[in-house]
């Protein structure tokens, strides 16, 4: 795991976001075990208290479930998992919209550019 955190957002929120990304892109799957709080703290070089707080937040949001004395797992609730994907996509598109709207570009042109860029990036990744 390699994450760079920014210094201005609460670290626990960044951790939650990181997990959401991993869920959205399929790296973390429904029901998959996740590291303990301490392992996570060690991996991400963050304070164990912060890791704890992030897990608590994820539990509250229903992203993970913890049974006593067992490692926490990603939820198997499809609705929540789907929601995460949706949420991230919508958020990304929102911020994209925010920066693109002032340019007053037509929707066709925009879609065209997006399509081109997206396939370029993907082919790069394949290489």
């Amino acid at each position: 795991m390699n994450v760079t955190f920014n210094n201005r957002d609460p670290v626990y929120i960044q951790v939650v976001r990181y997990f959401k990304e991993q869920i959205a892109n399929g790296n973390l799957m429904a029901g998959q075990e996740i590291p303990s709080r301490r392992e996570l703290a060690a991996m991400l070089k963050i304070n164990p208290n912060t890791a704890q707080k992030a897990y608590k937040e994820m539990e509250e949001q229903g992203l993970i479930t913890t049974e006593r004395n067992y490692p926490s797992k990603i939820t198997t609730n499809e609705n929540i998992l789907h929601g995460v994907r949706e949420e991230l996509i919508v958020a990304a598109v929102d911020s994209f919209m925010q920066s693109i709207r002032p340019l007053n570009i037509s929707i066709d042109e925009l879609l065209h550019i997006v399509q081109e860029k997206y396939s370029q990036e993907s082919s790069k990744e394949v290489l």
Partner: peptide, 28 residues
């Protein structure tokens, strides 16, 4: 790494430093 491990668990730590780089995410 020790700071994030079980070796520190539940202990109170006071660190003095004049530079915060590297440990900014580590401190409460």
């Amino acid at each position: 790494e020790v700071f994030t491990s079980h070796l520190i668990e539940d202990r109170g730590v006071i660190i003095t430093t004049h530079e915060i780089n590297d440990i900014e995410h580590l401190i409460d």
